[in-house]
Design a protein around this nucleic acid. Sequence first.
DNA 1: GTGAAAGCGCTAACAC
DNA 2: GTGTTAGCGCTTTCAC
Lengths: 341, 341
Amino acid sequence: MTTTSNILQGRHELYREETVQKVLVAAERLGYRPNLLARGLAKQRTHTIGLVIERYHSRLTRNDYALPILDGASEYLYAHEYDVKIISLASEHPKNLWRRLENGTMDGALLLAPVLESPLLEWYRHLALPAVSVGSLLPPETGISCVDIDNETAMRALTEWVIHQGHRQIGFIKGHPLHWSAHQRERAFRQTLADWGIITREEWILQGNYTPESGRRCAQQLLALKHRPTVVICANDGSAVGFIQECIAQGVRIPEDLSVAGFDDEPSYHPIVPNLTTVRHDKVKVGYLAAQLLMEQIQNPHAQPTTIRLPGELVIRSSVVRLAPPQASCAPQSKTIGGQP
Amino acid sequence: MTTTSNILQGRHELYREETVQKVLVAAERLGYRPNLLARGLAKQRTHTIGLVIERYHSRLTRNDYALPILDGASEYLYAHEYDVKIISLASEHPKNLWRRLENGTMDGALLLAPVLESPLLEWYRHLALPAVSVGSLLPPETGISCVDIDNETAMRALTEWVIHQGHRQIGFIKGHPLHWSAHQRERAFRQTLADWGIITREEWILQGNYTPESGRRCAQQLLALKHRPTVVICANDGSAVGFIQECIAQGVRIPEDLSVAGFDDEPSYHPIVPNLTTVRHDKVKVGYLAAQLLMEQIQNPHAQPTTIRLPGELVIRSSVVRLAPPQASCAPQSKTIGGQP
DNA sequence: GTGAAAGCGCTAACAC
DNA sequence: GTGTTAGCGCTTTCAC
């Protein structure tokens, strides 16, 4: 039994060639396949991680980011002989939550973009399962490792670029209030304006929720104002699309009458708004790095929490017009923005 | 031990209230959570199913159907206390395939749209794991249960509707040659034409692969012909989008100069081709029913293989013009087409 | 080098 | 009603 087990796990060097062959041939002939459950029980390691999806996200279909993140994470995990299990927390009582996660079936968890009031955050403090947040940069107090794009730096760069184009009357469509990214993007926007001494007019800062529908609604509100900004920065491409569609419907030309910028460079919108100036980032890589970080955490459970911020890239198209000649000294030298060394 | 195990599994009726409470309280106080691995080992049932994704599909991101199917399947499975594990077969040797699937970690498998030469088909004959194909209707010889939309009936209905609009010169863009659905749609198209005594001109039947890019290429080929059809039916919306874009780029107006129909009613294309006449179907439901069928198969492993075909629905917009007054007697009474009672 | 035996955490017969 | 026991299929310690 020992012999068999050892050889089947690749520890050939312990035995003579003859024995090894005998075992291998027999296993092959019998069509033997190890039972991974039993192995997991014995070794206390299942080679499975859970991708935890909160009630809030419910259907994967509705999340632009879930898929690339899953793809990236899978890529890393499969290369390391890990499987991924999807844990959907739709309508879960926080108590069940615990047994959904710490039940011996996974070595670690990838938390898909926890939201602001996520029970996962509270739960994590009582938890012994390695976990990393992917797609949300959580406050350090949570003690959870995070991987996401560098929302603040990228939004700052976009806003500064818009300012360099001569705009001073700048509107903003906020993202979903439950998303950390929405707050981070808004904060960077406001801070940048403040740093440049530009007044933020609250009537130009509208509450969206990342959907085209919300963008449309915001456009209606904004266009009803008697005094309009010269440019509107949207917290993501999704709301930018709705915003632009509503503008066009009302006869407001983009960018001749109003400039618009987005955020995310979401490929599925390219055919609809081919000229949208926005910020691109690599979500597949976010998933990949999160998986990698999680694996490290599994190897070494007492490692310090780490946060990885991936840089974005300004994608300048033609939806934002230049109002005045740019100041050469202010033009961005490189288009890669944010992230860590 | 028995007592504890029974009570924790909900069999309260065997014991007196007092004992039940004692156990429950103790479990709560100790923060006890059953180890699902151990339970699985003992019960020979893991409450997990695998969603098997072939090399061919590799990145989920690229499949319009993967996500809704996953959503639908999840919905059913979570309601029945099952988890889903993603098994990605990227670059897998058929031999490994076996141990990736029959390793004790899952009770059954959902095969995501197996392709024509899929090793899964051969493998299934040697397999003891319940499985159902979702998104591909496989030949009965395989002995595998299948759930998908009713490609043939729906394509026949679309083609007949086009004929009713007075078209007799009809082109066709084929789908990806490795997809069963592509062959089924093409066969229905050809058969319908034959039934109506309409000549199929092979130069009007072009090889696409479901992508917009292939649609573009087919448009180039078709527009180069000196004699063109009056309408082109595309095997899916994806290729229709590319086809239409290329037509417009070449100054061919849709539908004034050429009519085009799609298939799938893919929501992400609505903003790009809002007037596309196509066939809608419910992919979430496909996933849901497949999961249900799989569960039945797990309960009763010796059940006969079953095939479920879901009806589609003609979505008539304005990308196909009427060439002659329709014959009233031929107009479809109901728009729901195909499927089983 | 190889085999025997204990144990991973649970369930299910079977006594009591 | 409740406790004892054997086992699910594997790994691992420890003798031999």
